[in-house]
């Protein structure tokens, strides 16, 4: 079933348009930097932007920081929202279920295949950033936020860690999107709801008065990946983020499986 999902994704325009978009984002950032003579002011633009001209590796991190708050949740919402609702509105859901593909098994494979595609998006951004950044500014030992320097090998490992952490946060969002996807026959509806929920979380996260709920928001811990570039690594924020992400994945997947297993499929 996983291979089936991957084969379907590979034949869809959507997949390649998204992939092209994720190649374009870090490329555009580096091209813009190369074309402008003035370096960005400190605190201007996305995190790490100022550092790209020092070391191309930072282009990966800028790319990840740029996609994390909006583009990645959008793509995630699109894929997760469409996962079941798309089959449902196309009418293929009933044909999969009567094959028979078990309902929880179907959800499981849909979940894994969407997460795989989200990971692919993150990998595309990181690798493109590395390639384009490296081409423009070279790749060298990485200065950390704490003022020390990292050799190239460990630096790339930490970039990979950052990507993985960001993808994990999105895996929580995939679980939410999958739930919406089983509740409606409209893929775009489920997508809008999923992206909407993420934006609401980001807005709530920006309201100081709601500090008490901040630790439970999926988006709150997203930028903690920057802590990977301290020396030594500050694990607190990341560990809390991992726990919250895992919580969202478990709770929403279990809820989805429970509801979907009992649902009358009338589409």
């Amino acid at each position: 079933m996983f291979r089936v999902e991957m084969a379907k994704a590979a034949r869809r325009w959507r997949t390649w348009v998204l992939a092209a978009g994720f190649v374009a984002i870090p490329t555009l950032i580096v091209v813009a930097l190369v074309l402008t003579s003035e370096p960005p002011e400190p605190g201007e633009g996305p995190p790490f932007l100022r550092l790209v001209e020092i070391n191309g590796v930072f282009a990966s991190l800028v790319g990840l920081s740029v996609i994390q708050p909006f583009f990645l949740p959008l793509a995630t919402g699109l894929l997760a929202g469409d996962a079941i609702a798309g089959e449902s509105s196309a009418g293929t859901l009933r044909y999969l279920l009567v094959r028979p593909v078990g309902r929880v098994r179907l959800l499981g494979f849909k979940y894994v295949s969407v997460v795989t595609q989200v990971v692919a998006a993150v990998v595309i951004v990181a690798l493109t950033g590395l390639a384009v950044g490296g081409l423009a500014y070279g790749i060298g030992p990485l200065p950390t936020l704490s003022g020390t320097t990292l050799a190239v090998g460990p630096a790339l490992l930490r970039v990979a860690g950052a990507g993985l952490y960001i993808a994990l946060g999105m895996a929580g969002l995939v679980a939410i999107g999958l739930l919406f996807s089983t509740l409606t026959d409209s893929g775009p509806g489920a997508t809008a709801a999923t992206v909407g929920i993420y934006i609401v979380m980001e807005v709530l996260d920006a309201l100081p008065a709601l500090r008490i709920i901040h630790p439970y928001l999926l988006s709150h811990h997203a930028m903690a990946f920057a802590d990977l570039f301290r020396s030594p690594i500050a694990l607190d924020g990341i560990a809390r983020g991992v726990v919250v992400d895992a919580g969202y994945i478990l709770v929403f997947f279990a809820l989805t499986a429970m509801l979907f297993s009992r649902k009358d499929v009338t589409s």
């Binding site: 079933m1 291979r3 089936v4 196309a90 009418g91």
Partner: peptide, 26 residues
């Protein structure tokens, strides 16, 4: 079974559809 309209993944060929459905289960 054929349940109401025969629905397929329209962006794939007929043969490819059958291959994927054949693989999907079991």
């Amino acid at each position: 079974a054929v349940v109401e309209d025969p629905a397929f993944w329209d962006y794939l060929s007929g043969r490819r559809n059958l291959e994927l459905f054949a693989r999907a289960a079991g």
